[in-house]
Amino acid sequence: MLKPLDPLLHSELRLAIVSILIGVEEADFVYIRTETGATAGNLSVQIDKLQKAEYIEVEKGFRGKMPRTVCRITDKGRKAFADYVDTLRGYLKL
């Protein structure tokens, strides 16, 4: 019997956010928005959900006079992503 996929990651935008963050130390909100093609509002909502689940951490600050939001994946998020990929492999019999 296969494990169910983590519902928090099994959504297109949230999975894309975590997939970007998995390979980098940190990524800017603007970069994630450009790469995913999401609207700022929707992206904020999904980032907030991932942050509440402690999959990512968000740091709001300034670069010069411009506000800047930086996202980083947490250890919990990294493990959740690894489990998600393992479960996917089971579904796809890879």
Binding site: S11, E12, A38, L92
Partner: peptide, 26 residues
């Protein structure tokens, strides 16, 4: 991907993961 928060099938999941990782690396 746009503004949707749609559920997805497994193959699409793999596709998103691969594309995002490849794009970021590129």
């Amino acid at each position: 991907m746009g503004s949707t928060v749609s559920k997805l099938d497994e193959r699409r999941s793999i596709e998103i993961i691969s594309r995002m990782i490849a794009d970021t690396s590129a």
